[in-house]
Design a protein around this nucleic acid. Sequence first.
DNA 1: TAAACACTGAACCATATGGTTCAGTATAGC
DNA 2: GCTATACTGAACCATATGGTTCAGTGTTTA
Lengths: 116, 116
Amino acid sequence: MVQYSAPALDLSFAALADATRRGVIEQLGRGEASISDLAERFRMTLTGMKKHVAVLERAGLVVTRKVGRVRRCALGQRGLAAEAAWIEAQRVLFEARFAALDRVLSEMQGEDDNGH
Amino acid sequence: MVQYSAPALDLSFAALADATRRGVIEQLGRGEASISDLAERFRMTLTGMKKHVAVLERAGLVVTRKVGRVRRCALGQRGLAAEAAWIEAQRVLFEARFAALDRVLSEMQGEDDNGH
DNA sequence: TAAACACTGAACCATATGGTTCAGTATAGC
DNA sequence: GCTATACTGAACCATATGGTTCAGTGTTTA
């Protein structure tokens, strides 16, 4: 594979490409949680959940801190702004292209005025 | 791994988690292209690019059709609406949580009125 | 009809992913 | 101090990913 770099969007979209991790984000949106909390809710071993949290943390979507023997997980400050921005920019293009197509189609249908 | 299902968001976020594929989407936003066009622009073999296009197609982000010996690739009708919606919903929560934190912090700092 | 072109598919490779178990380590509570 | 709790790390497994090469297949075009 020979990965030379893993820019922010690579990491965050990859992090979002898993239903469990999206669930974790939704969950943390309702409040902090420990690894145990999350592991129980998503029916998974502690080790498995810790890996998911590590992926989210590496992507900057989640932050954690150790409090006694418990690791508390919370949403990261960075949020999803960059991801939202990229998607919005593309959405505009998607829609622009189909709007253009629609115009062409309606011109082809609009037989009351003659094209040149 | 034992993947039981691959819902739409899994496929599309996974598709977006690669810089080449995001580049292909941006490119197709400026017009249709053949596999050869894309392979050349992204310095890759035809076979490699075809795989990327297949991933985008499976995610519903791109559609292709064969015209003679050329495969023409274009943005898919579905667009990125579902992905944008999920991200926006989470962004609201991210921001709500930090807004709440900010309120707590500024209350702690606002020493002109006494807390109870 | 022969040659060039555009793609396609199979096989291969190295590494990543999503899980597990098992054996620790550090902290909390009786 | 002992025990239960909460996590951590290493090792393992099956499959997926991101590329490649090589050998076709179907289409143009001269």
